[in-house]
Nucleic acid binder design. Sequence first.
DNA 1: CTGAAACACGCACTAAAATGCATATAACCG
DNA 2: CGGTTATATGCATTTTAGTGCGTGTTTCAG
Lengths: 255, 255
Amino acid sequence: MAVIDLPQERREMMLRELRRKGKLVAAELSAEYGVSEDTIRRDLGELASAGLLKRVHGGALPLTPSNMPYYERDKCKQAVKNELAIAASQLVKDDQLILIGGGTTTAEIARNLPINLRATVVTTSPLIALYLAEYAHIEIIMVGGRINKRELVTSDAEATAKIRCFQADLCFLGVCGVHPEVGITSTLYEEVDLVRALIEQSGEVVATVTADKLGAIAPYVVASADNITHIITEKQVPQENLAPYRALGIEVIQA
Amino acid sequence: MAVIDLPQERREMMLRELRRKGKLVAAELSAEYGVSEDTIRRDLGELASAGLLKRVHGGALPLTPSNMPYYERDKCKQAVKNELAIAASQLVKDDQLILIGGGTTTAEIARNLPINLRATVVTTSPLIALYLAEYAHIEIIMVGGRINKRELVTSDAEATAKIRCFQADLCFLGVCGVHPEVGITSTLYEEVDLVRALIEQSGEVVATVTADKLGAIAPYVVASADNITHIITEKQVPQENLAPYRALGIEVIQA
DNA sequence: CTGAAACACGCACTAAAATGCATATAACCG
DNA sequence: CGGTTATATGCATTTTAGTGCGTGTTTCAG
C-alpha cells in the first residue's frame, strides 16, 4: 500500500477522496491517514481557505454541492452498502481486468477501490465511470448502448455483445436476489442477458448481497447460484442461512 | 547499475522517478543517490524553479497531480456557460435525434433542456448521460469506448465509429477554438476524429462558444468554420467580431 | 437543557528547509 | 604546467513547517 509521507500529498489525496465520495469526515480521515484529528482539522482549514472545499462541522463538503449527480435511492442502507463495498474492494489486485455491473452497491465499490490501484475496469454504468475517473491509474472502458434510466446502466444487446469481447479476472455483480436453488434472479428482463454475459466472461464472480436479497427470488432467472465465486454480505446474517451457499463452493465473506 | 556522476544526470533521473512514482521524498533520494539531503534539496529547488515539479515540504510532487480534471474547469465562467446553455436548449425540437459532444458547456446544455422534451440523445459523456437520466421522455444512447479522464468522454476509434451509425438532426459541440479562416480547432488530438464525425453526421451544428474561444486557435484543426450552422456566444461580444461568421452563413445568437 | 463530540488556541517538540561558509574537484587559460 | 575560477558538495546554524497534546470553548443531537 502506498505510504503517505508528504503532508501536501495527503491533502491532495483528501481532495480526490472528496470528489469521489462527496464528503469528508474528520474522524475517518484521522484513522485513514494515521495522523491526529488536529492535523486533519488544520489540513481541512488550509484547503478551505485555499477555496478547494467547504469546511463544515465534523468534516468537509465540496464547494459545488450538485455537480456530481446524486441519487435518492442510494441513501437507503448506505452504511451497510459501504461496509460491503469496502470488503469487496479488497478482492481486487493490480493489473487485473475487472467488470462492474450496475447497481448502488457496485457503485459504492467503485468509490472505495484502493486509491493507487492499477487496473482496467469495464462498466455499463456512467455513474461508475465518473467515480472511476478520480483514480489516476485505472483505465476505464465504458460499454455503450441505450441507457436504462431506472438502473442507470446500458443493458441492451449492444452492451451485452460488447461485454462478450472481454475475458476478465473479476466481476462485481449487483443482484436483485440470490437463492441457493433458484439461483441469481433479476427484476428486469432486459438485464438478464447482460448479467449472464458478465458472469460468463469473468473468472471470479463477486456478488455483494444485502441481507434482504439473500434467499430472495425475483421474476427472471439469470443463472444458477454456483456461478458465483464470492458472496459479500452483512455481518449479522446467521450462519445457517449461509451454509447452503458454502455448500455450493461459494466463498462467503461477512463485513 | 550505472553510476551517477553528473549532477544533471541525477536531476533527470529524479524527474523520471517522479513521473513513475508520483512523488519524491528528499530523505529517500539522499540514500538512493548517495548524496546529502542538502544536495537533494538544492536539486529539487532548481527543478522547481525550472517549472518541472512542485516543491513541497519533505520532497516534491508533480505539477499536475495527473488528475486535475474537469471539476476545476467547471466552476469558471459558470454563470456565462449557463446563459449560453439556456439559449442553446431553445434550438431543440420534439422528436429530434441529437448528438452531444463532451465539454463543460455541453454538459450545461444537458441540464437545461425543456423538461418535457421528447427526443433521443446520443452522447460520449457519462456525465451528460446522468444529467439526461432526469428527463422522463429523453431516450439516451451512451457511446462506449475508452474514457478520456481529462475530458470525461469516450473519444477513441470505437466511439467515432459508433457516432457514424447515426444521422442526427442537431449536434451540440463544445469546442476549444473557432476562427473564421482557420476553422474549428481542438487542443486534444484524439478528439479530432470524433468531433469531425459529430459534425458530419448531423444536420445542424451548434457551437457554444465563450468570448475567449471566439477567434481562438488551438493546435489541431477539426474542420472549416462553415460546417457550423449556429454559434451561441456571449451578449457582450462586439458585432464586428461576429460579422466574419455571419458572412459564412452561420446564424449567430447572443445570450 | 445537557452531555458528548468537534473545535480553536497555545505550547512543546521534531523534522525539514534556508543560509552561510569551507572544501574538493574539474574546467579554463596563459 | 600552474594558477585561477566555477561548480558541486557537505557541514553548522538558524528558521520554519508540521505535528501531537492539553485546555477551554463551541456546536450539535437527544
